[in-house]
Design a protein around this nucleic acid. Structure first.
Lengths: 343, 343
DNA sequence: CTGTTAGCGCGTTCAG
DNA sequence: CTGAACGCGCTAACAG
């Protein structure tokens, strides 16, 4: 707009600069630019013009320091490169943006130490709230003890009561297993994660419930729980196939489903001819492969949106509000990877 | 550790608190905890113990305000849910973490306005540097004018000279096209993005070079450039197939490759029997589908790592350093989706 | 409606 | 080696 270029990176322009330029005090400039407090229209216009001309950008640190809180909310998820978590973050971001909050995203690689370190920088930033897929208990404890709101999403972990949004994992696990049983399977393997996460616990519970209802005895050799990011994941899946001879595999998350699928393919096993496969959490590849993968779909984006709404509610309502836990419903999508057992 | 719980969220503990508790001044506490300046060992130990006991977390805003810079570097990518950008961010994060910097990640949905808004909050945070996959020119201009370092990654856009790391897109485009020509194709479609991005420009240029070298006339009807996130992307691909009757499709990024693949499948066209397909940027589904997709692979993680290294170099070296542009090499992976043209 | 004063929490002189 | 004083940029009281 202006012909004169800004003075360059020499010194950032401050409120005092624009006040001086406009012939007012800094307080007035503050009121004009923040929109709070009385300022005459003429003065305000002049101030706004100067600020615009000088390319003024308020110093967020000074604001946060003064107001003792910021409009940044932290989000920490387990794996930035997993489409499930990416979708979650996208959902969070949508509603946060509408409420004029800024999302800051962090990945912790499912590592409690990394999670704690990340959360620590959030408390350092005086973030009013954090949304997280919890991996360790320390993190939310730290946050809470510093007065930050926390909402857990996807899984619950906090010992202290806090807002959360999850899905009905037990139902998802039950439906997947019942579907397999209905097809005639009796040797159904469960591939889960070796954690205390409520996601896996719920899916496992649903699996056991379905078996019990069908009077199928539980065989612990069919249940394999693999540590997150274990380097020998595929070997463990191979071992399962070798030792337990399942006719169907229920993989309790999208990453395990992918690994299982790869192992099955490498072995030349036909799906569902030799082994049926059902996944949990629908991701694009599942309907691109042949046959397409039967899967328990979850409302990923909505999970994120709900979490953000819960956080906003608490930021607005304060700590006296009773904790709210939203439970969303998964949905079984029957596709081509499940069929009758062989023989 | 301690039996006494911390006083709770009442008032955040400050340097003054821990100083008082330890019977020193705040300055000494500052020196002890930051590790800068002289402090006797005994005093330091006492201070550290108190800080630990009280759960002290330094106020990042105060630090940033005082030091006029922070250890947070901003990263803004086009699409958080695209595995390419996710990998990029992962690479950046790796080297930043080692250097004790904190990454703050933002997605801009390939929208210049969103990008600018995000970047504005980075300058508000007094972020010393930003790594970005640029979409509009304003963003880096703003950053630079405020004295922040910027490194462009994946594509270049800034009018002002700045550090960047890209791949040799022209070579990638050329090799993909030559591969197709070698197979006997003469009607090769190019699916690109309707932008000025150097990525697409380079790939297109490589495509044209390959055609020229092979004495194949350029047919503009074979080149379709689709706006990012266009709602009618698939229809445009359909139209290409209808009007230009290509025997091969070169999709210039992973998203377009996916869309093209879906259209081809829906139409019941055989790959490569009826149409060959080559993608750009290898992502997991490409080797899961049948046949697997021939693709120009790029060193995604390394792209991110290099960008971060470039940024650190500049943060350390200052603005007097000559801008450095790293060019990494792509690599053609020949798989099953390419074969001789029909007939 | 506007200016003055004061202080958020920290790091950095500069004396002692 | 340590403490006192000051100011980073901004905003909330409080006069006027």
């Amino acid at each position: 707009m202006t012909a004169i270029e800004d003075p360059g990176p020499l010194r950032p322009v401050t409120l005092a600069d624009i006040a001086r330029e406009a012939g007012t005090s800094a307080s007035t400039a503050s009121r004009a630019l923040s929109g709070r407090g009385y300022v005459s229209d003429s003065v305000r216009d002049r101030l706004l013009a100067v600020a615009d001309r000088l390319g003024y950008v308020p110093n967020a640190s000074a604001q946060t320091l003064k107001q003792r809180t910021s409009r940044v909310v932290g989000v920490v998820v387990s794996a930035l490169d997993n489409q499930f978590y990416a979708g979650l973050a996208a959902g969070v971001e949508q509603v946060l943006r509408e409420a004029n909050y800024q999302m800051v995203l962090l990945g912790d690689n499912s590592d409690a130490a990394e999670e704690l370190a990340g959360v620590r920088t959030f408390v350092a930033m005086r973030t009013p709230g954090v949304i997280m897929t919890p991996v360790g208990a320390e993190a939310s404890r730290l946050l809470l003890s510093h007065g930050a709101a926390v909402v857990e999403v996807d899984r619950r972990l906090s010992s202290a009561p806090c807002d959360a949004v999850v899905i009905d994992n037990e139902r998802g696990g039950r439906e997947a297993t019942m579907h397999l049983i209905g097809l005639g399977h009796r040797r159904i393997a469960l591939l889960g994660v070796a954690t205390e996460w409520t996601t896996d616990a719920g899916r496992l519970k649903g699996y056991r419930t379905a078996l019990r209802n069908a009077r199928i005895p539980f065989d612990k050799r069919l249940v394999v729980r693999i540590p997150v990011r274990a380097p020998d994941t595929e070997a463990r899946i191979e071992a399962l196939l070798d030792t337990a001879a399942p006719t169907a595999v229920f993989a309790a998350n999208n990453a395990l489903a992918e690994q299982a699928w790869r192992v099955l393919r490498r072995r030349g096993l036909r799906i569902p001819g030799d082994v049926s496969l059902v996944g949990f959490d629908d991701v694009p590849w599942m309907e691109m492969v042949e046959p397409q993968i039967t899967v328990v779909d979850q409302p990923t984006i909505e999970l994120g949106r709900s979490a953000a709404r819960l956080l906003l509610r608490r930021l607005h309502g304060g700590p006296s509000l009773a904790p709210e836990v939203d439970v969303l419903q998964p949905r079984l999508l029957v596709r081509g990877s499940t069929g009758a057992p062989p023989g």
